[in-house]
């Protein structure tokens, strides 16, 4: 029971990352009809927003270390500590969650620039060419990041207060051994909030209504005198922000390196396809579903039964779904059909 519950939680937080990336991908598919292979790079850029923010906060100056008296020793002291003392230190401690505030505008700008600068010239081209150009862009972004941050993963810890594990077992009245890292729990809740706000934005605001209408019948909306293109550009920006936020908060779980984007890209494409092209709900559901499946497949009981199943389960499911339910789990008719 405990083991099942812990695997469920593990799966949920992995699935949360897949769901967030796949949500952005689907938004772009559904509105602009563009297959964006650079979406993984946006996720990676989000993660590096957090790294950059932390680097800025910890800008340091060399000062004499008073604790060593034998000789004159120097130590690095962040400016924030010098200026604000204890408060400064706790700001540094909270670097990752605080970097959200930097990531939102930065990712929005990157998204808008990408759409206006490159993607919009590719609406009329074939899907193969869209894939190729965004694949090229992903390589370029990845290499630029590597140039500035190096090839090694950069560990960026979560705030001290949540670095321990939550006693989930005790809360639920189950075994005391059932513990789960706080940060992963936070990631789960956070992704829930982001997903909910994207859906609320699309369902409850006038802007969202126009976007949904545009996804349904773009030409008709344009006939009504609405500048659909501009709305869709903003949607691309939002998709970039969602991917970026997924990346920012994932940093304490997985130290970011320059090719994390490519690693997640393939998985999130698979998620989108399983969920059904163009279906937002499908993308989210498939993200969590595949995350959970993957984590159950890595349980010892199952991996002893079918060797290596944990490595390929997601792809296997994708292949089966694509062949038996061509539109995915919740795909609409007529979206990206051959």
């Amino acid at each position: 029971m405990d083991a099942v519950l812990i695997q469920l939680l593990n799966g949920l937080d992995k699935g949360a990352a897949y769901a967030l990336i796949a949500l952005g991908l689907t938004l772009v598919f559904g509105t602009l009809g563009v297959v964006n292979f650079a979406h993984g790079a946006l996720f990676m850029l989000g993660a590096f927003c957090a790294v950059t923010f932390q680097k800025i906060l910890t800008l340091s100056v060399k000062v004499v270390d008073p604790s060593i008296t034998f000789f004159v020793a120097y130590k690095e002291q962040p400016y924030l500590e010098i200026w604000f003392g204890e408060l400064g230190l706790s700001i540094i401690d909270y670097a990752v969650p605080l970097s959200i505030f930097m990531a939102i505008p930065v990712m929005l700008m990157i998204g808008l620039a990408m759409e206006r600068g490159l993607i919009r010239h590719f609406y009329k081209r074939t899907h193969a060419e869209q894939i190729l150009v965004t694949f090229g862009l992903a390589i370029v972004i990845q290499e630029i990041v590597r140039h500035f941050f190096g090839a090694n993963p950069i560990p960026t810890p979560a705030p001290d207060i949540v670095s321990s594990s939550a006693q989930i077992g005790t809360w639920l009245g189950l075994s005391e051994n059932l513990v789960y890292p706080w940060w992963r729990l936070i990631y789960l809740v956070f992704s829930g909030v982001v997903i909910a706000s994207v859906f609320a934005f699309l369902q409850l605001t006038t802007f969202g209504m126009i976007v949904r209408a545009g996804m349904f019948d773009r030409q008709m909306v344009a006939f009504l005198g609405i500048n659909v293109q501009r709305k869709f550009t903003i949607v691309f920006g939002i998709a970039a922000v969602v991917a970026g936020l997924a990346g920012v908060m994932y940093v304490p779980v997985l130290p970011p390196d320059y090719h994390m984007g490519m690693d997640f890209l393939v998985l999130s494409f698979v998620v989108v396809v399983v969920g059904g092209m163009g279906s937002l709900g499908g993308a989210v559901a498939a993200g969590f579903l595949l995350g959970i499946l993957q984590s159950f497949a890595s349980m010892t009981v199952i991996s002893e039964l079918f060797k290596g199943i944990d490595q390929i389960i997601i792809y296997l499911v994708a292949v089966i779904i694509l062949l038996t339910r061509p539109r995915g789990l919740m795909g609409r008719k007529g979206v990206m059909e051959d």
Partner: peptide
């Protein structure tokens, strides 16, 4: 499958 689905299947 064809088109993008083919690409994703081969990717998988």
């Amino acid at each position: 499958r064809s088109g993008i689905y083919f690409s994703i299947l081969t990717l998988a």
